[in-house]
Design a binder for these strands. Structure first.
Lengths: 166, 166
DNA sequence: ATTTATGCAAATCCTTTGCAAATCT
DNA sequence: AGATTTGCAAAGGATTTGCATAAAT
């Protein structure tokens, strides 16, 4: 086979859990049962979730000792600080998604079914650079969400009487 | 003079207050003292504000009869429905800005001083169209915020010891 | 042995609601 | 008059905090 063109290996060298433990150490924080459980569970699937989703999920994880609500909140923040998660605010609640080892992307948010769909574009980088030039604004990140109706919901709508638009 | 090439006159024909009253009527709602006061005060200056900002501002407006907190919240929602205001969520609180008669734009948010700076680009429209094509996602709007440091804060930072970065 | 984390309960923050009294049309 | 609004107080929902106890280094 061809040469190893793997991506910069730093990026995925450590598992999320290892990366988190490294972060914790660097801050003099401790590696606890519950922090371990949370990182592991969060990185088992690539979903968008909020604190409550995670809490009810953990309730179903038998080998997991009871993890309290405050601890979930506290750990989620730490994971954001650690660069493992990104958070965004959707209608009052904070929604999280993987950041570590996951490519930069933006979202479409379906207002009907509440689904979040990811997409990518490099336009945003260009716009950001332009802003740095024009406004001397140091861009550290961005959040872009298109709102509207996803393909599924558009179809459902079409099948429905027009009356409920009001 | 040349022919009347004015923009669609609907757009700025009515003052915010008139536009709001029109909206209220169309919904069988009433034009009350407090709704009048709120529209007027909100459209006196072009600022970004949240419910609390407005409430404390109103407290200083003598000719304004006392307007209660719930009424402010209720009216702000109505103004969003009426297309007079846009709302966005910034760190847990809802921030409002003029929408009616105001050009489409996006924001930079300084994480240090919390300032919101507006900018415009037509790239977003293009991206939106591309999404409709590729994902059959019906775009009804978007929210784009670049986060980072504004020019002012970058300067301050430079003048400060590095220690407070922690 | 120390120090940091956890869980509990209670507190906070922002926003919304129920309802009787006040205000519009 | 008759309906919608208001203000008040209280409720709500998400997230955070104080503190004694449990767990990590």
């Amino acid at each position: 086979m061809a040469q190893d063109f793997s991506l910069p290996s730093v990026r995925v060298a450590l598992s999320p859990r290892e990366r988190f433990e490294e972060f914790l150490q660097s801050r003099g924080k401790r590696t606890t049962q519950q922090r371990r459980i949370i990182v592991d569970e969060v990185f088992k699937r690539h979903d968008h979730f909020d604190a409550d989703d995670l809490i009810s999920h953990l309730a179903g994880v038998s080998e997991a000792r009871r993890v309290s609500r405050p601890t979930v909140y506290r750990t989620l923040s730490e994971m954001v600080d650690a660069g493992l998660l990104r958070s965004m605010n959707l209608g009052g609640r904070t929604v999280y998604e993987h950041d570590y080892g996951y490519p930069q992307h933006d979202h479409m948010h379906c207002q009907k079914c509440n689904k979040l769909i990811e997409f990518s574009t490099d336009e945003l980088t260009k716009i950001g650079e332009e802003l740095e030039r024009q406004y001397q604004f140091r861009v550290t990140g961005h959040r872009l969400i298109f709102t509207g109706l996803c393909a599924d919901c558009r179809n459902q709508k079409r099948r429905t009487r027009k009356l409920d638009l009001v």
